[in-house]
């Protein structure tokens, strides 16, 4: 391989790797407006909802009720914003859902809950308010 081909090959490899990295990132990757919500999600929510936000978190294998798949546009689109906010703050029981989703109102501020609700819409690419 001559040096020109070698450079082209390197470029292509670089572009290929960069594309791969882009696609490997969860659909949720960093819009600045969601930066804090994404950090909160990564810290508190991924343990059950998964690093890919698909409900397959580390703990999900041991749970009798599977965590919500936040990447599911249909399932998430059917849930009104008010219910999303209620469930984050007060837990699954607030919407007659599983006790395994705990109340995070003692950890997040109201502002952070709103940011998380907006972030979930970003993740599922679905609905606004209903």
């Amino acid at each position: 391989m001559n040096s020109r081909n070698s450079i082209s090959f390197s470029w292509l490899t670089g572009i290929g790797l960069a594309s791969l990295l882009v696609f490997m990132e969860p659909a949720t990757a960093a819009d600045d407006q969601f930066k804090h919500a994404e950090r909160l999600y990564d810290t508190y929510c991924t343990q059950c909802h998964g690093v890919n936000r698909n409900g397959n978190g580390l703990n999900s294998a041991f749970m009798s009720v599977q965590p919500r798949d936040h990447s599911d546009a249909k399932g998430m689109g059917d849930i009104p914003n008010s219910e999303i906010i209620d469930v984050i703050k007060k837990g699954g029981l607030a919407a007659n859902k599983s006790v395994l989703m705990p109340a995070w109102g003692g950890v997040f501020s109201d502002e952070e809950v709103s940011q998380l609700a907006a972030y979930l819409r970003h993740v599922c690419k679905c609905g606004s308010d209903q």
Partner: peptide, 20 residues
């Protein structure tokens, strides 16, 4: 397990409960 959901994140024995 059922009323407070602690087992979602905490194991009480190997294979019984979450891992975070």
């Amino acid at each position: 397990n059922k009323l407070r959901g602690c087992s979602a994140c905490h194991m009480t024995a190997p294979g019984k409960g979450g891992l975070s």
